[in-house]
Design a protein around this nucleic acid. Sequence first.
DNA 1: ATATGACCAGATAAGCGTAATTGGTCAAAA
DNA 2: TTTTGACCAATTACGCTTATCTGGTCATAT
Lengths: 229, 229
Amino acid sequence: MKTPTPSASQIQRVLATAADLIAHYGFDKTTMEDIARQAGMSKSALYLLWSSKNQLFDALLASEMRRLLQDFQTRMEGDPAGGQIANLYRHALLALQANPLMCALYTRDARVLGDFVSRQDAERYTSRLLLSVEAIARMQAAGLIQADLRPEVIAYVFSIIAVGFIHIQAIVPTAEAPPLAEIAQAISHLMQSGLAGTAGDSTAGQQAISTLVAFAIQQYDDELAKTKR
Amino acid sequence: MKTPTPSASQIQRVLATAADLIAHYGFDKTTMEDIARQAGMSKSALYLLWSSKNQLFDALLASEMRRLLQDFQTRMEGDPAGGQIANLYRHALLALQANPLMCALYTRDARVLGDFVSRQDAERYTSRLLLSVEAIARMQAAGLIQADLRPEVIAYVFSIIAVGFIHIQAIVPTAEAPPLAEIAQAISHLMQSGLAGTAGDSTAGQQAISTLVAFAIQQYDDELAKTKR
DNA sequence: ATATGACCAGATAAGCGTAATTGGTCAAAA
DNA sequence: TTTTGACCAATTACGCTTATCTGGTCATAT
């Protein structure tokens, strides 16, 4: 199959421009007309791809989530010690930080998300975001994370740091902040010394996480496949 | 001197009610009339104590900062191992979390602070908040914090976690979150394993920090002393 | 088939004059 | 001396009307 659906590249282009515009101006202030013009088509053409603005947004979130996961996986697989919890978390943090829309979703940024913040299915994304309780428990069982902390607590601390990591950029001007990589490295250091388990090889964990992420990506692909049409 | 200034208790009462009201309704929505009535006096009486609403707010911030420091010191001194960096940070985090106005100031909460967020002297408080770069460098020199991380980076990570700690309560409903003390304990654990230095006795550090905090408290007392009158 | 401009109803924003608030002052009361 | 209620100017909130915008549809053009 050369082209899975007739206008796959068009869909990608629209979603990319929608991501830019919504991350910049917010959901409410970004009109369908804006998206269409910026993507080089008419507004009507958009309604041939999605039946409503909300459905376009749903597809956008799925697409960005997919991109985030892909980015995370690329970073992790490019790291020889990517299976260690410290690096795992570091890559997750950096991948999240590089995706403005996912940052907004994760921090429930009302300026970007508009009314979407109140919709209950926002959790559908944030609950999976970063490492889930289940994934942590699994890594504890595999000896990759020490087991004397409850997985719920670890997941919560992960979220705290991620939220702080995103929010602090609106508080401290970036010029005065240390370089991003150095911050991420320091946080990674804390994770390594405080959470690393007894298991020596991290490649097994890397494999497990990798397939898990691949599965999640597949799920989002499936969701994106049934984009109206 | 029995009463430093004629109406010291009045001042305390006003500042306490102002703290409650402003933390609840925000600076803009809290009127001088509200504060006066709630404190059991007339609006005019307030202007006998402060010459403007902004000056009252300045005094309030200084007062709350003082309370935060006092709270922190009490927690630290009540802890046998309070001089260890992990406990130090844990106590600072819990003391901050217990003070709504300082939380708002630290996270630049526009809903609570009103126009004050844009005023440049907001930094005057936040720059000192939590452990400063200088304090960290001093503890590194004393062997209480390991020295292979730049103090700026450590301070920044401290801030990240504090900001996340405050913000996450607006994202995750408290009913679903693990107990506060357990979270603080886990964060403390990360700090202990990742940042603790080589020095065995923490009592020296505790002493140093204690006098440092006492000095800061004194400074805020001085500032509060010259509250118009 | 594929894409588009014109079009519509509901929502949102912009004016605008008025009413209510509110920070701040002061002469008078206690 | 200490405190207060009345008072003022300036800002903000409120109704209300009008104008604009925007999500969504459809007949038409290519």
